[in-house]
């Protein structure tokens, strides 16, 4: 079956995938401007963490301190929130986070094979990031695209259907993302 060529275009045009300009989070960085818009919002810490994830793709240690001050919480509490949710991480991630769904409907459609293929293409194992900092590969639970299982998402943009997921075009797509 032919590869869905709209897929490449969709992935490359997706705002979640490509408007990624990862900023380097360093010791001296001031995270307050990013946090500020959410400071007055009740329960805004989740939104602030989302903003940090969008900008840095992880929650840098100093950002935890800034969040604690802004939301009048202890650092431990902030870390508790940041580490609870699977879309937040305090570990550095690649520019493209590829999440392979492993829930039952995808599992039945050879999710393991999808993971092995991506592991081979990227030269890393599930849970790791490539050395060039471009790709992070990990397992995830149901992303709600089960009708088109198996599924993985590139920065939350779904790649679906066996013909696409197992396509020979996938290495080309990954290469294009690498160059991006």
């Amino acid at each position: 079956m032919p590869f869905d060529h709209f897929l490449t275009r969709r992935i490359l045009k997706s705002t979640y995938v490509c408007e990624v300009k990862i900023l380097a989070g360093e010791a001296g960085t001031d995270y307050k401007p990013l946090i500020e818009p959410y400071r007055q919002m009740r329960g805004g810490i989740i939104e602030a963490l989302h903003a940090l994830m969008r900008a840095y793709h992880f929650i840098p240690p100093k950002a935890l301190k800034d969040l604690a001050k802004a939301f009048r919480m202890t650092e431990a509490e902030v870390y508790g929130v940041a580490s609870f949710y699977s879309y937040f991480t305090t570990k550095e991630q690649g520019a493209y986070v590829i999440r392979v769904c492993r829930s039952a409907p995808c599992h039945l459609e050879n999710a393991q094979g999808v993971m092995e293929l991506l592991e081979k293409e990227l030269g890393i194992h599930a849970g790791q990031t490539t050395e060039d900092g471009k790709f992070t590969l990990e397992w995830t639970e149901c992303v709600g695209q089960c009708a088109h299982a198996p599924v993985y998402t590139i920065n939350r943009e779904p790649v679906t259907e066996p013909k696409n997921v197992f396509s020979e075009q996938i290495p080309l797509l990954l290469e294009q993302l690498r160059q991006n």
Partner: peptide, 23 residues
Amino acid sequence: RMGAGAYVCGEESALIESIEGHR
């Protein structure tokens, strides 16, 4: 409000906790 990837947040009181900005 956006969740951040937790199955348990579909439970109503966990969802409320999450909107409040907690685990």
